[in-house]
């Protein structure tokens, strides 16, 4: 089961992204539609089609970590597109919901999108498959703290990528703990 985190600045510039493979097993049953798709549908381009057609990935990730073939909704560009598409929904919701943690704000095929919006309008977007509200809440809280610390640095500006190795390490550790 994988998680994808994106940190987006108020002007929607991506500042940081992370892909995390959780050791916990995926609770999502494979979609029936995916079984009917022909084998060629897992090629790089067809992956997009598969994802958009409503089927989940044909090649399920058999082991955690890298080196596994990805198909369908697991492709990087599809993930990015889903994350970007969810921004519209997030922007609608932040205008009427006063919570910072927006639980399961959007859904696309097997992906659920949860978000966290800081007072400064920084958006943390997380794509996940299973349901794990408490873990995600705790994860976002820790990422928020790390982000505030990054921001206090006078050399950090609002539209710069967060390249700190320590930041990366802490976010990964937190993801391992909560997701």
């Amino acid at each position: 089961m994988s998680h994808h985190l994106f940190l987006l600045s108020p002007s929607d510039t991506p500042l940081y992204s992370l892909t995390h493979f959780s050791a916990k097993a995926s609770q999502v049953a494979p979609s029936a539609l995916s079984a009917n798709l022909p084998a060629w549908s897992t090629s790089a381009f067809a992956g997009t089609l598969t994802a958009l057609s409503g089927a989940s990935s044909v090649v399920q990730t058999s082991a955690q970590g890298g080196g596994v073939r990805m198909g369908g909704g697991q492709d990087r560009h599809v993930i990015q597109m889903i994350a970007n598409a969810s921004l519209d929904v997030i922007e609608d919701v932040v205008r009427r919901d006063n919570g910072m943690y927006l639980k399961s704000v959007d859904k696309f095929n097997e992906w659920t999108v949860s978000a966290f919006v800081t007072p400064g309008n920084m958006k943390f977007v997380l794509l996940h498959e299973g349901k794990n509200d408490e873990g995600i809440r705790a994860f976002f809280a820790e990422v928020w703290e790390l982000y505030v610390k990054t921001m206090m640095n006078p050399f950090h500006t609002a539209h710069r990528m967060i390249g700190s190795a320590v930041f990366d390490g802490r976010v990964r550790a937190s993801a391992k703990k909560h997701l």
């Binding site: 009427r96 006063n98 910072m100 919006v117 800081t118 007072p119 400064g120 809280a141 921001m151 609002a158």
Partner: peptide, 23 residues
Amino acid sequence: GTRVLELMAWRAESASKAPKRDI
């Protein structure tokens, strides 16, 4: 101001289960 806002909110809300933003 951008930093004050973020830090102030963190100090006020980070302990709460459901942090709030004013809308």
